[in-house]
Design a protein around this nucleic acid. Sequence first.
DNA 1: TCTGATTCAGAATACGTATTCTTAACGCGA
DNA 2: TCGCGTTAAGAATACGTATTCTGAATCAGA
Lengths: 333, 333
Amino acid sequence: MRVTQQDIARISEVSQATVSRVLAGDERVDGQIRDRVLAVMNTHNYRPDVRARSLRQRKTHLIGLVIKREVGSLQDDPFFAMLIAEVVDALAGSPWHLCLDIAADTARQHSIYDELLRTRRVDGLILVESEASDERILRLQQDHFPFVLIGNAAEMPELHAIDNDNFRTAEIATSHLLEQGYGRIAFLAGPQTLTVTRDREAGYRNVVPEAMVAYTEFGAHSAREAAAQLLDEYQPDAILAMDDTMAMGVIQAARERKLAIPQDLGVVGFNDTPLCDHVEGGLTSVNLQIGNMVQWAIRRLVDVIDDTSVLGGRQAIMGCELMVRGSSVRGKL
Amino acid sequence: MRVTQQDIARISEVSQATVSRVLAGDERVDGQIRDRVLAVMNTHNYRPDVRARSLRQRKTHLIGLVIKREVGSLQDDPFFAMLIAEVVDALAGSPWHLCLDIAADTARQHSIYDELLRTRRVDGLILVESEASDERILRLQQDHFPFVLIGNAAEMPELHAIDNDNFRTAEIATSHLLEQGYGRIAFLAGPQTLTVTRDREAGYRNVVPEAMVAYTEFGAHSAREAAAQLLDEYQPDAILAMDDTMAMGVIQAARERKLAIPQDLGVVGFNDTPLCDHVEGGLTSVNLQIGNMVQWAIRRLVDVIDDTSVLGGRQAIMGCELMVRGSSVRGKL
DNA sequence: TCTGATTCAGAATACGTATTCTTAACGCGA
DNA sequence: TCGCGTTAAGAATACGTATTCTGAATCAGA
């Protein structure tokens, strides 16, 4: 049978209220009594019931992470594993826990919204890859539900959000390829509807002499097909891919065509995932400092949950670092 | 402000108890009243508060998934992403949600135990890669806390557990290499303390003419070093690795030595992760049907939570499938 | 010594729900 | 018509905690 504050109180010969105060570290409780209660708690191995606490404090200490992708893509793209790992890491040792949900289809997204928020299962939400136009965001806003975006929200400055400067990162990656002597650089973009895609494309176009762009879905498979088309149509000597997984697709397409990397084709990805090490010579990739972004997001989210008054700016831009590896360097590394 | 059953009751001019009954689909409530209450619920967008419900029902509808690894390894090994994805998938549409924790160090593991179980944050637990000797399992048992193991528990038949026949899977993989004409097959094993390692090693030894074994930590990096040693010491013509990530390490080591795959060295991994597609020609790997295992585990866990009486056997053995790809086939595929 | 402020712990209450207990109404057989 | 079983809804309670309210005791100041 479970031991409650009531039990501790009875044994310690104090009231339940006092036990609660001791637990909270209330200064006003007499030292001797505190010690006695603490001792009893210890010997009886008492732990507060988080369900009761949640109800009373109106706080579950759960943070929801909702990933808007096919469940299967979690395995394909280590980016999401990185993301989850960083969240778990940032939450470790804190009183907060992670509630995870993944779904791409709208219906399921809505039911997640219902389940997680309306029923007050979680205290706040971290949203990834959401577009500002997303209807869910409006609902969250009008419900005054605490949430933080990882991703662009420049057009909605009232939201809490952190992102990279996608224009800049694309510029940096493209410039690097130019400096390495690649002249015909193509951009293998993600879905055209996404802000990330458009921002990166703009950065790319700003640097490149002649633009060659293909839009496609995320994932290695569709990237491979799109890359094949790019290669056949434009004969580029380098491809900048939207992420490492898509870069792997590019490499597969190059392999089919007997194109050597980096001699015949330079390749650069995004996210700096462990995939980079599985490419011979290494895959050059833009490290977006997802760890720092997650830490910022969680710190901010917890602040918002604890107190709706906001300290500091609502949005932040994270720096990035180009990790140069073999796939984009023709000479000696 | 949040709308409660009390509010619905007042507006519908019934008692709160009746509202609760309507919500539960209680047959005894009058059809007319039910319709009225449901209508009010609808217009006022009522959703039950999961915190109150948790307290009252003594059930949070949260399932904990505890992964015993360094947080960082989540990104390196897609196996865990697969695992998580399968859990999320299996839980989708059900009233259950996932609470995720990852930690390798013992102290943190214990604090997770405290946080998740003792405070009753989750209703049950899925444990992965736990050894039967694990002290936590004993504590879970004596607390009668619902949990299911994904992994071997043959020596503790009173536990709920599902696993592959690791002896058999290793036999199958090794036999395949033999059939492909590889004569000197080495086994790149995981930590020697683990049952998985020992079982697979036994299966391997049972088939191979001459055993060559190296033990090492999980992960591509340590696998690469261990593989290098194996190659230098024994000159094997094939290596069976404990998982795909380690197989990637093997491939890196082979690359350094200019060994062609599969001509000079055959490679087989476990788990059939997406990594297999990132190897030129593909990496042969044993598909352990992790999805089926997860589904079994969750079904069983929910059964145990809902009713401690058990239906059917407590343990199950899942089949496997060898996915033959280029890395282990010298001729035409 | 008496009054009023202060301190500290117990009593009481609320959080929102599910369920048991209670009661009122109704139907039916005698 | 009376009595009893049955039904259906309201009243009351409990889940375990945090906190407000209350009251007793102590202390300071006059």
